[in-house]
Design a protein around this nucleic acid. Structure first.
Lengths: 262, 262
DNA sequence: AAAAGCGTTCCATATTGCGAAACATTTTTT
DNA sequence: AAAAAATGTTTCGCAATATGGAACGCTTTT
């Protein structure tokens, strides 16, 4: 009675791999018992997994184990994935509420990479999707949200890395005092801000902090002509509330997962 | 021309998941391009993975991402898995060379758990397999190999944990000085040793240390009647050489994996 | 307005995975 | 030592099912 449209061999292979992850070494009979699959089937699935490199077999004996290649299925899975899983619905909710597009980004090397954007949902037409686009740390709202509120050591690391890179885009880097003033301004304001010209858009962003660490930034875009102190205050509060919700949900989910991961 | 006996749907699903692990969010077209699979096929595989809980889908848009459940395929994969992957062939080689069975164990809570044993390969018949059996830290050769050569803080942690457990098996715990003498004796000897009576077997074991940390222990069993100082010296050298090889191979492989895991 | 791209559904077809049964080998029991 | 039980592996005829071209509806781009 498997719900239709499910490719059975795949479901079976995954259950085998999941079972193999419970113990370091497995025999065919172990897996037969653990999954309820007929032994010839287990055998054939293992042959497939071996051929694909995810399973290794003891040469002489019939003992199987997962290889390090299983990490290629999950190594990208970390805090950022949690952030997205929890963050995307929140971002969509904000856009439903205030119409303006919302984006979630993370730090990658020395830029902010947009991971998710509700731009397509927004009724206000703006230029195409920004997903996977990289944004400069200086001069963008999301970048400011990171630089202005990360820990001092992290800041120094980033600045050093920026100085080391060959192409110098930010002339601000030439003066330490300029940097300090720039960052202090962001901190005083309480959020990242990049005001666009008339006809362009203006962006505001804040960090998403968990455990004193910035795990990502969340930003909102708005037509420059619609931007003023009043809406800034309103949307800032909304972003802060949302960031808080994201962190709370993440903590809960991660605690849950930790617990159920035997 | 896929090498026969490989279940295609499984191989395809794995390639999809592997591709999804590269970017946080994927569209069907992304995966279609990345894997070369027809779009209806990608669609069907994703439906399967969603049904199995390994993939989540953005409600409104068609954006897919791996869920935390992918960790259930690999969370058990750590240093110990590397140890086994590298260690098992070494263990077999020793047994081929000297005939006696060799076992590899790791610390789990407050016991040593045998992960692999070449007992079935040994021409000397001994009692059944010891895989997944737990061995006391005191009074066994493998346990001594751990206690005698782990770091002081680790030792204290273990002792505390042993004292805390309800059933007190090791009366040696009652006296700190007894413990100290016991451990000092192991250290002086240079390896864990449990001498059996005539007709029984004798066991010797040493730690496998990488980066000042004990990642496992390796031990050799021998008929008590065959054990004497001369063979002890010989086998100890063999075990030490082998442990060194294991650590070297592990370091190499892990460095390699680190590098190729983009 | 047209064209290109995307996600999704359909469906006839042959492919392909299936697992009972038989066989080989090892381990345990008698 | 023999018998019995358990485990790993191979075979094979058949039915189940995964397949992907084509078509559809939709959005985005030209």
């Amino acid at each position: 009675m498997p719900s239709s449209d499910v490719i059975e061999p795949i479901a079976r292979a995954l259950s085998i791999m999941s079972a193999m992850n419970q113990h370091r070494l497995s025999t065919i009979s172990d897996l037969h018992r653990a999954t309820g699959l007929p032994k010839p089937t287990v055998h054939r699935i293992l042959a497939t997994l071996i051929s694909c490199g995810y399973v290794g077999k003891d040469i002489d004996r019939s003992v199987y184990m997962l290889t390090e290649q299983v990490l290629s299925l999950s190594s990208g899975y970390g805090k950022e994935a949690w952030l997205l899983q929890v963050g995307t619905p929140v971002a969509r909710r904000i856009t439903r509420e205030v119409k303006w597009p919302v984006a979630i980004g993370i730090l990658d090397y020395n830029t902010i990479v947009v991971q998710y954007s509700t731009r397509p949902y927004s009724e206000f037409v703006m230029q195409g999707s920004t997903v996977n686009k990289r944004f400069n740390l200086f001069s963008t709202a999301m970048g400011q949200a990171y630089l202005g509120f990360c820990e001092e050591t992290q800041l120094q690391n980033i600045l050093q890395a920026l100085r080391d890179q060959e192409v110098q885009e930010d002339c601000i880097l030439e003066s330490d005092s300029k940097i300090k003033r720039y960052i202090a301004a962001v901190q005083d304001r309480g959020y990242g801000l990049r005001v666009g010209n008339r006809g362009e858009s203006t962006h505001m962003a804040i960090p998403i902090k968990s455990d004193h660490q910035i795990i990502g930034v969340i930003g909102l875009s708005i037509f420059s002509s619609c931007f003023n102190d009043k809406v800034a205050k309103e949307y800032l509060a909304l972003l802060r509330k949302s960031a808080g919700e994201i962190v709370d949900s993440m903590d809960k989910m991660m605690a849950l997962a930790e617990h159920s991961a035997t």
